[in-house]
Amino acid sequence: MDDFAAHIDSQRGLPWENIADFEHFYKTHFVKMVVLCAKIAEDEDLSSQLVQEAFFKIWEKRGSLKEVANPAAYLYQTVRNTALDYMRKMKRERVGVDIDPEAHHHEEGDGKDEMLSFVRNASQKLPEKCRVIFEMAYFEGLSNAEIADYLDLSPLTVKKQKAIGVQKVKEILIPAMQTLLVLFSYLSK
């Protein structure tokens, strides 16, 4: 843990409680967040703008963020959501139709999109820290070391949280899949 993180932990404060801490938080995480965002937006200049927008959102609503347990995880989620929202908006503008981002697209294919959707929905039921690590690992493709660096955690903690996440997602999905199999067998009669 760096000196700044130790300072924050000892103060029990958040990095957006004053401008100096926020500036340090920004400088510490900006480049890492641009790299992360570029995995979604696939454009470094755009990613830089989206990360700046995410930091701005956090600063604007800092008064309501008193209960955030892990500022780095909250930042990651804000950056990710900002990038995904932007990508959805661009897709709507290209298509010219108001697409519901939660709608499931039933296109011909091998069912990977539907399965991924089930896993994403199941991952939303994980505890926050576990969910963030699970998403970074399995949806963003980040290594344990990268996740540990982004969230200021030990690689062992990341590994354990990933294992917990996989186990809990399985526990959520297996009964649902069994129900679907029973339903399909009933309908095929």
Rank of each mutant, 00 (worst) to 15 (best):
Glu107Leu: 07
Glu23Ser: 14
Ala72Ser: 08
Leu126Lys: 09
Leu50Val: 08
Phe56Lys: 13
Thr157His: 08
Tyr138Trp: 12
Val34Tyr: 09
Glu114Trp: 02
Ser64Gly: 12
Met136Glu: 02
Gln49Gly: 04
His104Gln: 13
Val31Gly: 11
Ser185Trp: 06
Ser117Thr: 07
Leu65Gln: 05
Pro175Phe: 11
Phe56Asn: 13
Glu42Val: 04
Glu146Tyr: 11
Phe134Gly: 00
Lys159Ser: 15
Phe56Gln: 14
His105Ala: 09
Arg12Lys: 12
Arg80Met: 11
His106Tyr: 08
Leu65Glu: 02
Asp149His: 13
Gln11Ser: 11
Met115Tyr: 05
Leu46Asn: 01
Ala41Gly: 03
Tyr26Val: 11
Met115Ser: 06
Glu42Leu: 13
Tyr74His: 15
Ser188Ala: 15
Lys160Arg: 13
Lys189Phe: 14
Leu142Ile: 02
Val132Thr: 12
Arg94Asp: 07
Val119Arg: 14
Gln178Ala: 11
Trp59Lys: 12
Ala5Cys: 07
Gly13Lys: 02
Val182Thr: 14
Lys189Asn: 12
Lys125Thr: 04
His7Gly: 04
Asp9Leu: 13
Ile147Met: 00
Ile99Tyr: 00
Thr82Val: 02
Leu84Gln: 01
Gly141Trp: 04
Pro127His: 05
Val51Ser: 05
Tyr86Lys: 00
Arg92Thr: 02
Asp3Trp: 03
Lys162Arg: 01
Val169Ser: 03
Asn18Ser: 03
Gln49Ile: 06
Lys129Ala: 14
Met115Gly: 10
Glu135Asp: 13
Val169Thr: 10
Ala103Gln: 07
Glu107Met: 06
Leu65Thr: 06
His105Ser: 06
Pro155Tyr: 03
Trp59Thr: 03
His24Asp: 09
Met87His: 00
Gly109Val: 06
Leu180Gly: 13
Ile147Ala: 03
Lys27Leu: 15
Gln178Tyr: 10
Leu84Ile: 03
Leu142Cys: 06
Asp9Cys: 08
